[in-house]
Design a protein around this nucleic acid. Structure first.
Lengths: 344, 344
DNA sequence: TTGTAAGCGTTATCAT
DNA sequence: ATGATAACGCTTACAA
């Protein structure tokens, strides 16, 4: 009968085969230069021969390093998040970091589970997007949990924050994005501008709404509450918002979306109702890739993903080498003008 | 001066505080029922008090379990992959598995690095999409590496394969998808049907091309090599293919894309050239989410993501409990008919 | 340049 | 119901 449990190959096995000590094997593993070239070769050879692969768990148990960073975001199928994520992954890889991606679906319990996993896995940093850090009023438990977490591991909040939680913050200059948007629309002659999507109590809406109102006032434009239609952040919610907007008599000539997705929904709703898209100018936010291929292609606010991700990774790098980073960083936006905005 | 290195809290610390043995602490950690309720409570209390979090590395070093599965895919920003990924993640989570996502960008060296990482991290299963497993002629090294990998850890190849590599395979019935597409177009009166996108030597093109030709022949339709324009898999490549196609005099009336993305590019190119979209019927493949919001909305082949991901997770589950799974599984497709196809 | 031995923080085995 | 002790597989002083 064959032994059905084949023993794991360890550095001890390699050591025995190569007639050296385990320490020496470890040295070649870690790239320690204090090894005679000939023995290094011998050890390497035996490793290949025995098909040896070092055990990461054992390694990080002794070194107390995991070179791992945890990344929580609401939903990777949303191009906004996948775009940020992949940039960070690429850059982190160059630094020798490996990422643990977790989708929260903006669900607080799921977030808690991920946070717990991250601490048990001893990640060296947590990047947090969405969910509780976008709530205007997070619960006490949510806050307390985050406080506990930041005691053990540095947290980078991206486009969000939490009161009295000590962490790094990187955020898009959403106010600027909205300001640029309004200025652009005004330059096209628009005087009646609406804002659809988002959820009250979620900061991205509150931030944008404030900037929207401020910009309108700066141009002495009408601030009509009926033109502000919160609904959500998805395509479907965008449709709903547009539907509600269209049910009114007095309509804006330009519509800003809390993000690109809701505008896709708005376009869809117009078509559904056989209302010409040309009745309105549309502006999104995020500049996710489909915005360049929908028709009309969408004018939208770009986050400068490259800079955003660079800043995230810069902090990670500093954490690694024990250097301080600035706690807050604001990334400016740029307006990408496409076909969906035109003179009124 | 404060001690700047705070000691890690271990089960020994908890044991001391609770005046029990580390073993008992470990027992409450693993949920072992052989612990008096009162001591369990005491231990739990001390854990909270000392802010203890078990060390996953130590745990998996002794248990030899990681409950981790590795997932390699080309690019998570592609909605096709993110859709599959998130479904798998969700279902795997319910099984107590955690996923390590890695983007390969279809780069063989990157794949190798990820595979190495996975084996060092002792993942219990690898899900592989794209890259080398879609090559008609993978290199010897690529094959050998995979052979080494499958010796140590089960691999599930999704929509790909590798000769003489012992692994699980799940694949979309691409042939059926193409057949359904052609049948649909024929039912609309189309007789001249083209196929754009893909790269020669990548199986998805070869498979689809074969099915396309077979279906055309079944209907006695013209198989015109000029209407088959390989180019790539991206929006941009779709534009290029369409450009090349449009440069010809004799044009098809219907165009099938290797995937949805290339059709987005094709639509864009038509608009760029001021050629009416209505001159053609378009069909994509994958049914990624933007296909419902582009205009005209895109008729396309859906992979049955739910079934696809369920089958992947089913295999993982079987591996976990040591049960055998069928080595191959084919998932049928469904044609989603939208606005981009119409009578000729 | 190489080796010995201790330690990392768990779980598993075997007693009691 | 609880405890002592030995793994697990590596790295790291410290020695030689």
């Amino acid at each position: 009968m064959k032994k059905d449990v084949k023993k794991n190959i360890t550095i001890y096995d390699i050591a025995k085969e190569a007639k050296v000590s385990p320490t020496t094997v470890s040295r070649v593993l870690t790239g320690n230069p204090l090894v005679k070239e000939s023995t290094r070769q011998l050890v390497l050879e035996k490793m290949k021969e025995l098909d040896f692969t070092p055990n990461e768990a054992a390694r990080s148990l002794t070194t107390k390093q995991t070179n791992t960073i945890g990344f929580i975001l609401p939903d990777i199928t949303n191009p906004f998040f996948s775009q940020v994520y992949i940039e960070v992954e690429k850059k982190a890889l160059d630094l020798g970091f490996t990422i643990l991606l977790r989708n929260s679906m903006s669900n607080s319990e799921v977030e808690s589970a991920h946070l717990k996993e991250f601490t048990e896995k001893r990640v060296e940093c947590i990047v947090f997007m969405g969910g509780r850090i976008n709530k205007v009023q997070p619960s006490e438990e949510e806050i307390n949990e985050m406080r506990e977490v930041v005691k053990r591991v540095p947290v980078i909040m991206v486009n969000g924050k939490m009161k009295d939680v000590n962490c790094y913050r990187i955020r898009t200059n959403e106010e600027e994005g909205i300001r640029l948007t309004v200025e652009h629309l005004v330059s096209l002659g628009h005087k009646k501008i609406g804002l659809i999507g988002g959820v009250k109590g979620i900061t991205s809406l509150d931030l944008k709404t404030a900037a929207y109102r401020k910009s309108l006032k700066a141009f002495d434009l009408e601030v009509n509450p009926n033109w502000q239609v919160p609904s959500g952040f998805s395509i479907e919610k965008g449709r709903e918002a547009m539907k509600q907007l269209l049910s009114q008599k007095d309509l804006p000539t330009a519509i800003i979306g809390i993000n690109d997705l809701v505008i896709y929904g708005a376009l869809k709703e117009c078509r559904e109702q056989n209302i010409s898209i040309d009745n309105f100018s549309f502006v999104g936010f995020d500049d996710i890739f489909p915005s360049d291929i929908v028709h009309p292609s969408l004018t939208t606010v770009n986050h400068n993903y490259d800079i955003l991700s660079s800043e995230i990774v810069k902090i990670i790098q500093n954490i690694k080498v024990g250097k301080a980073s600035k706690k807050g960083k604001i990334i400016n936006t740029k307006l990408i003008i496409r076909e969906s905005t035109k003179e009124v």
